[in-house]
Design a protein around this nucleic acid. Sequence first.
RNA 1: GCGGGUGUGGUGAAAUUGGUAGACACGCCAGACUUAGGAUCUGGUGCUUCACGGCAUGUAGGUUCGAGUCCUAUCACCCGCACCA
Length: 921
Amino acid sequence: MEYNYRDIEKKWQEHWKQTKAYQVSNDSSKPKCYVLDMFPYPSGVGLHVGHPLGYIASDIYARYKRLKGFNVLHPMGYDAFGLPAEQYALETGQHPAVTTEQNIKAFREQLDHIGFCFDWDREFRTSDPGYYKWTQWIFLQLFDSWLNRATQKAERISTLTALFEKEGNAAHECPGDRALRFTAAEWKSFDEVRQREILMHYRLAYLAFAEVNWCPALGTVLANDEVVNGVSERGGYPVIKKKMRQWFLRITEYANRLLEGLEQVDYSDALREMQRNWIGKSQGAEIRFNVKDTDQQITVYTTRPDTIFGVDFMVLAPEHDLVNRITTPDQKAAVEKYLDYVQSRSERERLAEVKQITGCFTGAYALNPFNGQPIPVWISEYVLAGYGTGAIMAVPCGDQRDFLFAKHFNIHITNIIGDAFNGQEANPTKDAVLQNSDFLDGMVMKAAMDAAAAKIEEMGIGKRQINYKMRDAGFSRQRYWGEPFPIVYKDGIAYPVAENELPVELPHVEHYKQGEDGEGPLANVTDWVNVAPGIRRETNTMPGYAGSSWYFLRYADPHNTTAFADRKAVDYWNQVDVYVGGAEHAVGHLLYSRMWTKALYDLGYIGFDEPYKKIINQGMIGGSSRLVYRVRGTNTFVSHGLKDQYETDPLHVDVNIVDGTELDTDAFRQWKPDYREAEFILEDGKYICGSLLEKMSKRLFNTVNPKDVVDKYGADTYRMYEMFLGPIEQSKPWETKGIEGVHRFLKKLWRLYVDENKGLIVKDAPATPEELKVLHKTIQKIDGDTSNFSYNTAVSQFMICLNELSSLKCNKRSILEPLLVLLCPYAPHVTAELWQLLGNTSSILEAAYPVFDEQYVKESSFTYPIAVNGKTRTEMGFALDADNGAIEQEVLANEVVQRWMEGKPLKKVVIVKGRMINVVV
RNA sequence: GCGGGUGUGGUGAAAUUGGUAGACACGCCAGACUUAGGAUCUGGUGCUUCACGGCAUGUAGGUUCGAGUCCUAUCACCCGCACCA
């Protein structure tokens, strides 16, 4: 009986399906463990061998925890809404629902070959009305909430209106309009339109006007990456900035909690750092400067209030409101010319030409609040309207951009740091001692930062201020294939759709063209849009990250029709214990879902405010491309080793017709019609290809389909090989050739249990101490490595264990049976088969994980490496409880040691018990 | 430019966290069995040297009895952010 992985794997996959072996109950006395993969988008291009890497890792972990006695939730579903499906619909006229369904089917089929332990009964799609009903519902909760900065928690809008009625908004600064102030009496005097407008400035989901890329020729809004140098990527039509009313999530109100929450979760440093950068917290001060001869003030934001006496000019963003008001008549023409120039430049150009210094003097002067010095006010595109206050105080001796600007426009540079400034470049130090700085003279800058801020607050000309780089998240898409907003407009005011009318179902459409004036395709469905006379539906849809921001909660209770999930189920499954996925979602998805979780927590719907306890970012599997070398101007291909003798062009060749580096020349001739008559110049009778590490991509002919690998070697081999490749977080290239080592391992494993002729050869005889030692060493290593996601070393240990058991010719049940359980998470099919062959009637999935027992691996003696002056020269065995003095004596008497000591005087002997011995002379 | 990460054989990688560098595999070499082998098994395989030995973890220093591991500087590559005041 041979190791017939094809039949074995098919048999067990069917068995698991029929017996619902991976169905998991919400009702269990066992401790829970929630293992989740990042929501896949079923793209339709198909998987390559890199994609399932994370799924395999999480699958191993889920199976391991189950064997360790946990009730494990390991679900899978689909992030099914999204742009690619719609784009495809536009091109082919097929409805996105149809193509999405096809893609999911293909995706599922590919997954099913690999033997995952997903509980498919919990599957759902974000595009199911039964699911997006609750996406809409959560959106409405956000719409009906604001963040109370005093408590740092989301509260209902009703608590806000109650506050307004009692005390106005004095104690609760308006996040959407910081200048807004009103008293209780004023609030009560506002009409509904005004009140709703104000509340909109507080809501966590809110409407605001924002710029989008509008392409009139295409009649559509384009995403940033669809615009290249100011024209559309497709067609090259001009794109203009257009202000449109859009939905946003006020994620900035959660900035600080998102930042602090990072301390409590187990993410990689890189991931945490990426989120920190994205949030971009900075501490500084806002300072108001009067503008000379006017009643205008410029408010700047600076992180370095200590440099206030080094301010030589100020810069406003060109879009700043004050520009028109403070520009002097004689500078008006120049400023307008500059504004025209800025207007003509796309975002991309502005970013691309960072080095180019441009700007224009407004003619106005601001006054330094401390010494009354006039400071020229400039405008320049290097100051961004969206960050801080859109205005800066420029300190050329301390900031390189300010320095270059001053040099370029010949502005005087004041030195406030003495020798620390060399006149050649700015010095951004915080450690210099201040000069020319009035009351700050003689202070170290670090200390002066606080002193200056204190003085500014004392004088009432500004205040300390914390700033975040993060922006509120745009939540509207002018698209069809997404969740409709549960919002209707009456007289232009947004009202929520009643809860009992959810879901607002996506209407069927025949075409996906944009609506007029930048609206999405839904605007064309007039009888859907016009609910009643004067009442119009929102025609945008939600973005891709809406559905994925809370899906992990739904798996706890996926079929619930009365709530997004039953509270008891969510309390039981709680946080995701391990979340596995790619680093490309490091900021977007993770921040959004963290925010939604915090909001739901604040509002009392769930009992925790971080969704993912631990995140594993699997690395990418790179492609190893194969190259052939065509002699220029011919149809002759020369082998890699001989290519330097010719003038050649390297061409990518499909890795699937190359064995290692040896090209299958017949397959090559059939690969493309052009090569049918190809000639080869061989070396040693073979055509050897060159290789190159690149991204795995269809274009480079270096993709490998997991289905092909599973067909050829089996799912167990594929799973183990992916893990054997290296640490899970690390990126590494795929080499199909290397898989044979793992495949051999499984075949050899099989032969340990089953003889080709005699069948099962496992005996019930008692195990020897050596065999027990091998087993328990393995239990210890595998248990530790598996819980640490160190799967590559675990696979190595299985190989070591098998090599040792084979040479011991071990056929004892008491050794071989526990080994199957250890291996089961990695190779579930073959272990299930052998488990059954051993006569077990219960499933290996229910087996108990072997327990490590130290007594079997304890050593009484150790072979010490003996080093002289740190260099190992020989080995000597000693009992572990041997006396140091006795060891020393014996070591010094050893002739090899004697020889290396060369009669030099002994300094000391270092003895590290159970490790090594070093003789120092 | 800023931030994070990685540099170890021909290749993927290990190294109990300061203690025998290269485990386990791929590849390669030699051999056994075989009609055959892309099956299986055995042995070898960092570089260098006839050998004793010497040299080796990107590079240069340092700490230590002892460094792939810690410290300092430097180089290369990968990822993320990028006029963020």
